[in-house]
Design a protein around this nucleic acid. Sequence first.
DNA 1: TATTGTTATACTCTATAACTATA
DNA 2: TATAGTTATAGAGTATAACAATA
Lengths: 143, 143
Amino acid sequence: MPRAPEPADDDLGALFMRVARRVRRRWVDVLEPWGLSPHQSRALGVVGQHEPVRPGVIAGHLRIAPRSATDVLDGLEGLGLVERRPDPEDRRAQVVHLTTSGRRLLDEVGGARRDDLAEFFGHLPVEDRASLTRILRALEDDD
Amino acid sequence: MPRAPEPADDDLGALFMRVARRVRRRWVDVLEPWGLSPHQSRALGVVGQHEPVRPGVIAGHLRIAPRSATDVLDGLEGLGLVERRPDPEDRRAQVVHLTTSGRRLLDEVGGARRDDLAEFFGHLPVEDRASLTRILRALEDDD
DNA sequence: TATTGTTATACTCTATAACTATA
DNA sequence: TATAGTTATAGAGTATAACAATA
């Protein structure tokens, strides 16, 4: 995408959105070799941490709508990375498991992702990274 | 959109993206009475500050592709808020002007936007807002 | 009645390529 | 040859509503 050299002259919200676009773009690029979307890679991580886990729980972690979680899981299942099985405790529900290749990919992708985050946010002083994390958490949870 | 009570347990990039979605959602909601998108409201602001201005310059300020700027300006022109005229200095190019109603809307929208930003980021201590701005600028401009 | 996950639908943002008119 | 802006096209992300099965 072409980037003009114009200066940025606007509000904090617009600045935030522009940086967010950079973050997303890097994330998409890192995942490109595996053909995963950011949501898919995050969902894979949630499944790895909470397996077996219901789609609604995954949606909660990712802060996305149940509708979106369905698409994300369809994609992951189509790639053979997760499996949906009936939930023995609630016949309306399902539980999601990693497959063997899903578990392997999770490690690979996680490594690449960590490297890229270290590169992008690593340019910041350590205190700034800590401040950013703290401030973002406050903004995520306030009313 | 339903929000599950699950805790956030992940990397800075994912946290960033989730907050970005909140920022975007608020922005969309604020603009809803006027039927403008975030890009359209930003473009309106750029036109107001730099009028007459070429589409490519607007794209540069918004950090979007020329292709996207075309859509944004199509929308604004369809609402009667801006006008495209031939650029007397370069017959390939155009210059964008505000219409009278565009100028009026710019003030209204700008006020609503400022109020909402004050509400969202206003929960942060003043030092945190300053830190956030500084850190985001660093992240926007690094390599 | 409420909840789980689905199907259906639509709009926006983003990205790439190719085209035109002009420089 | 390069540039300004356009048309054309496609893929994600996001959002709402409605539905079936089950609690």
